[in-house]
Design a protein around this nucleic acid. Structure first.
Length: 306
DNA sequence: TTGAGATATAACCAACCGAG
DNA sequence: CTCGGTTGGTTATATCTCAA
């Protein structure tokens, strides 16, 4: 870079048990314009990805945008140094946890300029990044993004497969938020067939009763003409089993809905290597797991979610 | 408690490519 | 050709997990 006015702020917070390291490089609008000139097409894809989905780990970004994790690490580190990205992680030592990347000060400025929005002040952006790093919803967000990046990776590796749509919670909320609050919406294509689905990611913070309460919203949505399979993803196998038993006993609540569940461990250790696209989904009520593309369609005729 | 294996990053290095 | 940037490889280092 020519004239560098960037100040790197590494903020090790050693005061609590959950130590965190954050790297935020700040800069001016002029720096953002300068940094923008050095971006590759792939960099712009990563920026768009982070603008839409807020935070992704090194591994998740690699799945979507890189073929080599080494290259991804190098490039992401460079973009962080330039202020385009910011990153943080719990625990100080390297190698113990991958970095979580989000848009940096310059990245947010570029994104706002491209969308025709007013450009936020660097201090405001820094506050947002710090809030994200400390957010209790961080693991939940990373869990959802992990599911979608694994699907994306499958699409990259297999002919005839594509992740046609990947909507964040915010984007789905704008479309159907009045009736339900899914954690994501997607459309998967495989062998000339398509399946649209809603995602509910559970990391054990809600009671099963509360999960069951979501069925009513989806029934109302179906009556409004929007009906797709609802995928429940659980952090643990036991909780998934409990959910499956509970949901199977409530067939009346599920009338007209297509509900299936899986556990993260099933998704990541699928022997065929198909990940979330593989036969890891257990429809309710059933004891036979199906591929994502083979999930039963809801009884009501689906219409586009948008 | 200890050691092996897995995982992740930093710091190097070499090869390649396009612009000037 | 030189220079700067990108890509991808190796090595060193550090921690975590898990089994003995």
């Amino acid at each position: 870079m020519g004239r560098t006015r960037l100040a790197t702020v590494a903020t090790p917070n050693n005061h609590t048990a959950t130590r965190s390291t954050i790297t935020i490089t700040t800069g001016s609008v002029a720096d953002a314009i300068d940094a923008g000139r050095h971006l590759t097409d792939r960099d712009r894809r990563v920026l768009a990805l982070l603008a839409a989905h807020r935070v992704l780990t090194t591994e998740q970004i690699t799945r979507v945008a890189f073929t080599s994790h080494i290259t991804a690490q190098h490039r992401l580190a460079t973009l962080t140094k330039r202020g385009v990205l910011a990153r943080f992680r719990r625990c100080l030592p390297s190698g113990s946890q991958s970095w979580r990347y989000t848009l940096g000060v310059l990245g947010v400025m570029m994104n706002a300029a491209r969308a025709g929005r007013s450009i936020p002040r660097p201090s405001r952006i820094t506050e947002t990044i710090l809030a994200l790093a400390e957010s209790p919803k961080l693991d939940h967000l990373l869990g959802i993004n992990d599911f979608f990046t694994r699907l994306h990776n499958q699409a990259n590796r297999r002919d005839g497969c594509a992740l046609v749509e990947w909507w964040s919670e915010r984007k789905v909320a704008k479309s159907v938020g009045e009736l339900v609050r899914p954690d994501g919406y997607g459309e998967w294509q495989e062998s000339g067939r398509n399946v649209r689905f809603f995602v509910e990611y559970d990391n054990g913070t809600e009671t099963l009763e509360r999960l069951a309460g979501k069925f009513e919203g989806y029934r109302n949505l179906a009556m409004a003409g929007i009906s797709h399979p609802i995928l429940f993803i659980f952090a643990g196998v036991t909780r998934q089993n409990n959910f499956h038993r509970m949901a199977s006993a409530r067939s009346r609540d599920l009338a007209g809905l297509s509900v299936a569940s899986t556990a993260v461990t099933d998704m990541t250790t699928d022997t065929a290597g198909d990940g979330p696209a593989g036969p890891v989904w257990l429809p309710v009520p059933s004891s036979t797991r199906r591929r994502l593309i083979d999930l039963p369609a809801p009884a009501t005729r689906p219409r586009a979610a948008a």
